[in-house]
Amino acid sequence: MATTKKTTKKEKLTRERLIALYMDQVLETGTTPKNIYKFTKDNNLKEEDFYSFFGSFAALQKGVWERFFEHTTEVMQKSEEYSGFSAREKLLTFYYTFFEILSANRSYVLFSLKQEKGALKKLQQLTGLRKRVKEFSRDLIRESRFAEEERTIKTPGSAFAEATWLQLLFLLKFWMDDSSLQFEKTDVAIEKSVNTVFDLFDTTALERVLDFGKFIWKEKMA
């Protein structure tokens, strides 16, 4: 989701372009636009152009996160190997790709999340993303066909979907605080947390949880 210049009257406005204009203005001014009229005027748009895609700034902010998700799945689908991945591998691929996209838009993401007070799970701008992520995780369960050496997921689809969402929130908070080179510690957290979720009811679950817990403890105490 690259930055873009202000729209001229000759250019066709799209949902993605409107999102990019909004993100640019937020980063350039250090604040959210005061109202839709001023935002559209500043970007050479008509007010009705905005309402062709979103009913409010709140809806647009949700749209930003939904676009991050869409971009992630588009990138994954371009890989010829992806369709043959196990559920575990697909979830790992999703997280790695999603956080690469967030890292490319880190300034906006940090601004938007830190601007709102309260826990991440209560933020309205993430509600659309939550729905998409839970649908994605349910699809993983439905299509899962593990190799003989892999263990069957024993967690019901709905519980797995909720666990995946909470896992993403944890990783998001971890990534926000991560100052390691190229966010290498976030990559480690992704791998360990995915293995923990998939092995939650397995005989090795306790071992995974302890390993993951030790990792988190070291990071928080460093």
Score class of each variant (00 low, 15 high):
residue 2 A to S: 10
residue 2 A to E: 10
residue 4 T to Y: 14
residue 5 K to R: 13
residue 6 K to E: 05
residue 7 T to C: 12
residue 8 T to I: 09
residue 14 T to W: 04
residue 15 R to N: 07
residue 18 L to I: 09
residue 21 L to H: 05
residue 23 M to W: 06
residue 24 D to Y: 04
residue 29 T to D: 15
residue 30 G to S: 04
residue 30 G to K: 11
residue 33 P to S: 12
residue 35 N to K: 15
residue 38 K to G: 05
residue 38 K to T: 09
residue 47 E to C: 12
residue 47 E to M: 05
residue 52 S to I: 07
residue 53 F to V: 02
residue 53 F to K: 01
residue 54 F to M: 10
residue 54 F to W: 00
residue 55 G to W: 15
residue 59 A to H: 04
residue 60 L to M: 13
residue 61 Q to A: 07
residue 64 V to Q: 06
residue 64 V to Y: 06
residue 66 E to C: 03
residue 68 F to D: 00
residue 68 F to H: 03
residue 69 F to G: 00
residue 70 E to S: 07
residue 73 T to E: 08
residue 77 Q to A: 11
residue 77 Q to L: 05
residue 83 S to Y: 14
residue 90 K to M: 12
residue 92 L to P: 02
residue 95 Y to Q: 08
residue 95 Y to T: 03
residue 101 I to R: 12
residue 107 S to D: 15
residue 108 Y to I: 07
residue 109 V to R: 00
residue 109 V to M: 02
residue 112 S to W: 11
residue 113 L to D: 14
residue 113 L to S: 15
residue 117 K to I: 09
residue 118 G to C: 12
residue 122 K to I: 08
residue 122 K to N: 15
residue 125 Q to A: 03
residue 129 L to A: 03
residue 137 S to N: 11
residue 137 S to P: 08
residue 140 L to D: 07
residue 142 R to H: 14
residue 143 E to G: 09
residue 147 A to E: 09
residue 147 A to K: 15
residue 149 E to C: 06
residue 149 E to N: 14
residue 151 R to L: 13
residue 153 I to V: 15
residue 154 K to Q: 14
residue 156 P to I: 06
residue 158 S to M: 03
residue 166 L to G: 11
residue 168 L to I: 11
residue 168 L to M: 08
residue 170 F to T: 02
residue 172 L to T: 01
residue 172 L to E: 02
residue 174 F to R: 08
residue 177 D to P: 00
residue 178 D to L: 06
residue 179 S to N: 12
residue 180 S to K: 03
residue 182 Q to P: 00
residue 185 K to M: 08
residue 192 K to L: 11
residue 194 V to N: 04
residue 197 V to L: 15
residue 199 D to K: 01
residue 201 F to L: 09
residue 201 F to S: 05
residue 203 T to I: 13
residue 204 T to S: 13
residue 204 T to H: 03
residue 207 E to C: 06
residue 207 E to Q: 15
residue 209 V to F: 00
residue 210 L to R: 02
residue 211 D to Q: 05
residue 214 K to Y: 09
residue 215 F to T: 02
residue 219 E to V: 06
